[in-house]
């Protein structure tokens, strides 16, 4: 098979042509697309708070008075409730 191109390209003829990229024109394009069923098909992002890469999460249900006390203590010290649970876990491990 010959390695020589069967046609040559005139690079000067490959010119940039200005296209309308304004939000208004894109809105018209999207509307035209929707009329023909060309709609948004990208997967929706997962709703809700994304998992933190830094901390983990426990799913503890406790009695209402314990929940209130943890919430109050965290509020008083100005820390997250998780800090109280972390300290409680350290005490549990060292018991």
């Amino acid at each position: 098979m010959s390695d020589k191109p069967t046609f040559s390209i005139d690079l000067d003829s490959l010119k940039t042509r200005r296209k309308d990229t304004t939000p208004e024109s894109q809105g018209r394009v999207d509307a035209a697309g929707e009329q023909h069923g060309f709609v948004n098909r990208e997967p929706n992002r997962k709703r809700g708070r994304q998992p933190s890469p830094r901390v983990g999460q426990v799913h503890a249900k406790v009695m209402p008075n314990v929940a209130d006390e943890i919430a109050d203590e965290a509020k008083r010290r100005g820390v997250q409730q998780g800090v109280i649970i972390e300290e409680a876990w350290v005490l549990y491990k060292n018991r």
Binding site: L14, T16, V29, D30, A32, G33, H36, F38, N40, R41
Partner: peptide, 25 residues
């Protein structure tokens, strides 16, 4: 965007907004 080059956009075989936007350009 640059003179002297060609951009080819290969799309999924589906009727999507991405297709209509790529056609617009």
């Amino acid at each position: 965007d640059a003179d002297g080059r060609v951009v080819i956009v290969d799309l999924e075989g589906v009727a999507s907004r991405l297709v209509s936007r790529a056609i617009s350009q």
